[in-house]
Nucleic acid binder design. Structure first.
Length: 333
DNA sequence: ATGGTGAGCACTATTACCTCA
DNA sequence: CATGAGGTAATAGTGCTCACC
């Protein structure tokens, strides 16, 4: 970390900690960064997401409402009452999925879950859009017209209506489906949350097979697992941001103090210099400071130059068993 | 080889419900 | 009991990548 010290009494310049491309989509590229790289990196400044085009309109090449509309296609199908088994069939699934903790649980699954067609169905579901999940459930479908929900208030409409819910509603909801106004929010059980946490420690992203296996394991919809992981990643990022901000704040305070101290020291040295008789003034006064012991020594330029040319400063200090003296040299007239 | 398109996934921002002090 | 704050499941909108045509 570098400390910029301005001379001559002008306004101190902003302190630069790190430089990073100001690409507007930088945040979106985080996923391309090695997730294990916890190196500290933070950008201060405005992030221009640029989500609007030159006319100020929101740009979107694909409208996800279209996907929801596709749900309606399923509503005409009698397949809606068909329950699909989505569990991966292999006993080695857990190792394939990278969830060693899954092995015992999957091994106890009923044999009926291991038939070939089930796996094919699962694979198909895994590779298709979330809409494919809806074929397993009966529900009231929202009806869209020109992308707008017309048969249900927005706050009555959520995933439970959209995709159905095999978790808590699969039995009870069937009896009170008519009561569309009673929106209930799913609360994951402690066991489910703990299980998801464990899997998150293993992988903070899921491939489709892992997602399906987890969903089956926890008796949740794959979409719920997916959403949980999304929110979990967001929480992690938020926490990390808070930690980073705290760290930056401390750094800033420390550097501000350091800057003040150095300014004060500089003023003292200038005062000292101006008070010295003319004949005592060297052509150039070299001030050296050790950041570790924070002492300033006044030497002649020739002395420090000689030292620098004969011995690398850090090496000399290290061999002498002394802390690394990085000399900050202030040349004054 | 190149460009358009759709699917899938990740991300952020936001909403809405639930819990608890 | 009412209420506000905080937590979190879920949704919406967007960008990026990849496969396919």
């Amino acid at each position: 970390m570098e400390l910029a010290l301005s001379l001559g009494g002008e306004t101190p310049k902003p302190i630069m900690f790190l430089e990073k491309s100001s690409s507007s989509s930088s945040s979106l590229h985080d996923k391309k960064v090695n997730k294990d790289d916890l190196g500290f990196c933070m950008v201060l400044g405005k992030c221009n997401e640029g989500h609007e085009d030159e006319n100020g309109r929101r740009k979107r090449s694909r409208n996800h409402h279209q996907e929801v509309t596709i749900c309606s296609k399923g509503s005409s199908s009698k397949d809606l009452s068909l329950q699909l088994d989505l569990l991966p069939s292999s006993k080695n699934t857990s190792s394939q999925l990278g969830f060693p903790w899954l092995s015992q649980n999957l091994a106890t699954e009923p044999a009926s879950l291991t038939n070939g067609p089930a796996l094919e169905a699962e694979e198909g579901a895994a590779l298709s859009s979330p809409n494919s999940e809806i074929s397993s459930f009966q529900m009231n479908f929202p009806i869209y017209k020109n992308g707008k929900l017309i048969n249900m208030k927005r706050d009555q409409y959520d995933g439970d209506y959209k995709w159905g819910n095999i978790n808590n509603y699969s039995t009870s909801r069937a009896s009170d489906e008519d009561d569309a106004s009673a929106r209930k929010k799913l609360r994951l059980t402690k066991e489910q949350s703990a299980f998801l946490e464990e899997s998150f420690k293993e992988h903070n992203t899921l491939n489709p097979k892992q997602k399906l296996a987890l969903a089956k394991q926890l008796n949740l919809r794959p979409r719920q697992v997916e959403v949980w992981f999304q929110n979990r990643r967001a929480r992690t990022k938020l926490k990390q941001t808070e930690v980073d901000c705290e760290y930056l704040k401390k750094c800033c305070e420390t550097l501000t103090e350091e800057n003040k101290r150095l300014h004060k020291e500089l003023q003292e040295l200038r005062a000292l210099k101006s008070s010295q008789p003319f004949y005592m003034q060297l052509p150039a006064t070299t001030l050296t400071m050790c950041p570790s012991c924070e002492r300033v020594a006044t030497t002649s330029a020739t002395t420090i130059t000689a030292a620098a040319t004969t011995t690398p400063v850090g090496a000399a200090a290290d061999t002498a068993g002394v802390h690394n003296h990085k000399l900050i040299t202030l040349m004054t007239k």
